[in-house]
Simulated scan of single mutants.
Amino acid sequence: MHRKISYFLFSLAILFLFTMNPSSYGTEEAMVDIQNEPVSYTLEELSQYNGKNEQPEYIAIDGVVYDVTHIAEWQDLLDTDVFSGQDISEMVEDESIRDSIIEKAHEVGILK
């Protein structure tokens, strides 16, 4: 039974791919998806992800950008109004805080 469902879902995915409008999916987007390259953020772009205006909260630590939107410890440990959307590598010296964030946060890209 599970095998039939798997085959059905696979067939449905293939059918979807063949019916997609190729003009709606640019070559650059396809290359990024195929190569699974991380998204690069400048400091200016990172600053837009500060939890305001329904944006997620991103931070950078040692060149890696993390989504800390749904991490309770993030809300409790630091003043998110100050740190969200920032590179906090130099600001947070406590290794336990850094490790806690890195361990629980989802990596979303790299900092240029």
Results as ranks from 00 to 15, higher is better:
I59S: 00
D76H: 13
S84G: 14
L78G: 02
V64S: 06
T69G: 07
A60H: 07
A72M: 13
V82K: 07
Q86L: 01
D62K: 15
E73L: 09
V68T: 06
D79N: 15
W74F: 14
V65Q: 01
V68D: 05
D76W: 09
F83W: 12
I61C: 06
W74P: 13
D87Y: 03
D79F: 05
H70S: 10
S89G: 01
S84C: 10
D67F: 04
T80D: 02
F83T: 08
D76I: 14
V68Q: 04
D81E: 09
V82Y: 11
T69L: 04
F83R: 04
T80F: 02
I59E: 03
H70A: 06
S84F: 15
G63Q: 15
I88V: 15
T80E: 01
D87R: 02
S84K: 15
V82M: 07
Y66S: 04
D67W: 03
T69I: 07
Q86M: 03
Q75A: 11
D87T: 06
I71G: 00
T69Q: 04
I71W: 00
F83G: 03
T80H: 02
L77G: 10
S84V: 11
I59M: 01
I61E: 01
W74I: 14
G63P: 13
S84N: 15
A72L: 12
I71L: 05
S84I: 08
E90G: 13
Q75C: 06
A60P: 07
V68C: 06
D79I: 05
H70Y: 11
Q75I: 12
D62F: 07
Q86F: 00
V68F: 06
T69A: 06
L78H: 08
W74R: 13
L77C: 13
V82H: 03
W74G: 12
I59F: 03
I71P: 03
Q75K: 14
Q75W: 09
G63W: 12
V68G: 06
D67N: 10
G85S: 11
D79T: 05
V64T: 15
D87N: 13
F83C: 05
E90I: 12
V82N: 00
I71N: 04
Q75H: 15
Y66F: 09
T80A: 01
I71D: 01
S89N: 03
G63R: 14
E73K: 09
V65C: 02
L77W: 15
V65E: 00
V64C: 06
S89A: 02
G85M: 11
A60K: 05
I59K: 00
A60E: 05
I88W: 06
E90F: 14
D76Q: 11
A72Y: 10
E90W: 10
G85F: 09
A60Y: 11
V82F: 08
F83L: 09
V65S: 00
A72P: 11
S89W: 01
L78K: 03
Q75F: 13
D81Y: 08
E73C: 09
D87G: 05
T80L: 00
V68L: 07
T69P: 05
L77T: 13
V64K: 13
L77D: 15
L77M: 08
G85C: 15
D76V: 10
